[in-house]
Design a protein around this nucleic acid. Structure first.
Lengths: 154, 154
DNA sequence: AGAGGTATTGATTTTCATTCTCATTACGGA
DNA sequence: TCCGTAATGAGAATGAAAATCAATACCTCT
């Protein structure tokens, strides 16, 4: 296996912290799932991750992956998205960014904007809120010539 | 039939247009559902709307409401949201706004920002997208001691 | 107005992601 | 190593949304 990146190490540490701080246990499954998850770019569903983990650990149950991904969110290692109904997409917590989604082909492009960031703080504050997170999604039609039409709306 | 507001009339017209333009039919169910839907403030699930419509039209089927709400979205009368997984919330299309949600009490406050609006256009364009819509959600904790459960616009 | 072709409906079933249940197993502190 | 408890895996349960399908309602044409 490749050298443990700095980011990966941080994630492992964060999980350990969270577990011990909450009287939970460190298990081989949680480690395995974290390993696979960290090895992922972009977004992934629980089911997809399950398939991946399964290749290395055939005895793994899908319910465990669901449970663990939820745990990761609570531990600040992952983030859950509900871009479309019926599926939860997870991605690594870290460099935070927003999403630009093609309503035709479903392509997801990431972006960030310091300007929007500041404006969000301003708005939340003015409404008497302590901002703890946000989600900013743009829907558009991408110019890709191959954009294979696939149904999905906001 | 109550006084037809300007907004309601526009919605009815938009539905008629969409139907005829797509070779679809005008039915009493669609009218009834639109009526109830327009009578709604804030967000509503298909199931909730079904219950409401049902009071006036006991013969209505829930599948019809699902289908119709989807139709409304395509016709530009409604918008679908997936704030949490597993449920689709619909709201009237119209004055467009973003949402600020309290993670503690679930209160939903609406806001808009011209500045963010412009920035969105800029970002989408720079990525080769034709912007057709967006969703901007802020999550925070409202600092009021009574944390009012009031999904209302300012 | 009447007929016919098709979209629509309502009841029901099906799908499918996610959660729950529970007996069994694995952690981890003492 | 022992024990109490959290965790796991398999399968059942849940629930929103979609799909089926026979019966019905619309609409267009005559």
């Amino acid at each position: 296996m490749p050298a443990p990146s700095e980011v990966a190490q941080r994630a492992h540490r964060r999980l350990s912290d969270y577990l011990s701080r909450h009287g939970l246990k460190q298990t081989r499954q949680r480690d395995a799932i974290l390993e696979s998850f960290l090895d992922t770019d972009g977004h992934i569903t629980s089911e997809e991750l399950y398939e991946r983990v399964r290749r290395e650990h055939p005895e793994m149950g899908s319910a465990t992956v669901y449970r663990t991904l939820k745990l990761f969110c609570e531990a600040g290692i992952a983030n859950a998205h509900h871009f479309r109904d019926g599926v939860t997409l997870y991605e690594r917590e870290g460099h935070h960014h927003e999403h630009l989604i093609c309503t035709d082909c479903g392509a997801i492009v990431e972006f960030e904007s310091e300007l929007v960031e500041q404006e969000q703080d301003r708005v939340a504050k003015s409404r008497g809120f302590d901002l703890v997170g946000h989600r900013h999604i743009l829907y558009g039609v991408c110019v890709r010539s191959d954009c294979p039409r696939r149904p999905e709306a906001p």
